[in-house]
């Protein structure tokens, strides 16, 4: 299985029936394709749409019905449209139940860094709505590849890039493992199919303990 598909399939299992959910750009968006059976959630788009539905047929797409990535979407029954201050206010003020976000780095303090890298000496690309989500959402789930292309851990003792949220992350899902965030330590809950504890130890910079219930991801 493509490691990114593995990650989003596992992330989708975190969603519970009836939740109000915001999915970040990139990998997390795909989680909507793998909702567990019987789980119905309402998706929020920060562009002011509660009740983001699937991609419409080409002939039915409208310039004024889009998600936060300016992609054509449909409206689900019960959806609501609001202005941007209300939409971001809902994010900041804890109205969303859960958000799944991509990240550049995550750490054992529950920090996430996902808005900036240095390019030509400049921080790029920018914050968007991610910081509001991290600030206000009860459950922040982070999805990322466990290491960079050179095998260097992205699961750190302390993030090195500018943070998006401090101490907000509850769960980290990678192509190798699932961690919960404890008190300045990660708790290893699951390993990906075929990945050993030894391998996870070798590619994780963060301190972690192994949960009693440690088992293989069911994806």
């Amino acid at each position: 299985m493509d490691p990114r598909v593995l990650i989003v399939k596992r992330a989708a299992q975190e969603l519970k029936d009836g939740q109000l959910v915001n999915l970040g750009f990139g990998m997390p968006t795909q989680a909507s394709n793998y909702l567990p059976e019987g789980v119905k959630v309402m998706f929020h788009g920060e562009n002011g749409l509660l009740g983001v539905g699937p991609r419409p047929k080409a002939a039915e797409a409208k310039a004024d019905i889009t998600n936060a990535g300016s992609e054509p979407v449909s409206l689900t029954p019960g959806s609501a449209i609001m202005d941007l201050a209300t939409s971001l206010g809902a994010m900041r003020n804890g109205v969303l139940d859960v958000t799944i976000l991509g990240a550049l780095e995550a750490d054992q303090l529950g920090n996430i860094a996902n808005w900036a890298v240095k390019r030509n000496g400049l921080w790029w690309p920018g914050i968007g709505g991610a910081m509001d989500l991290c600030y206000g959402t009860e459950r922040v789930i982070v999805c990322l590849m466990h290491t960079d292309k050179k095998g260097v851990s992205k699961i750190l003792k302390k993030c090195t890039l500018p943070l998006t949220g401090k101490g907000c992350v509850k769960t980290i899902i990678t192509d190798k493992a699932v961690f919960d965030v404890g008190d300045n330590v990660l708790i290893l809950k699951e390993h990906a199919p075929g990945v050993t504890l030894q391998e996870i130890k070798a590619c994780t910079e963060a301190d972690f303990i192994v949960a009693d219930t440690f088992c293989e991801m069911k994806v």
Binding site: M91, N120, W124, G129, A130
Partner: peptide, 19 residues
């Protein structure tokens, strides 16, 4: 931006920008 032709003094969280 990366060529240095487009200035960004600071980035605002989206909720801050609209407020």
């Amino acid at each position: 931006y990366l060529k240095g032709n487009l200035k960004v003094e600071q980035f605002y969280p989206m909720g801050t920008w609209i407020e």
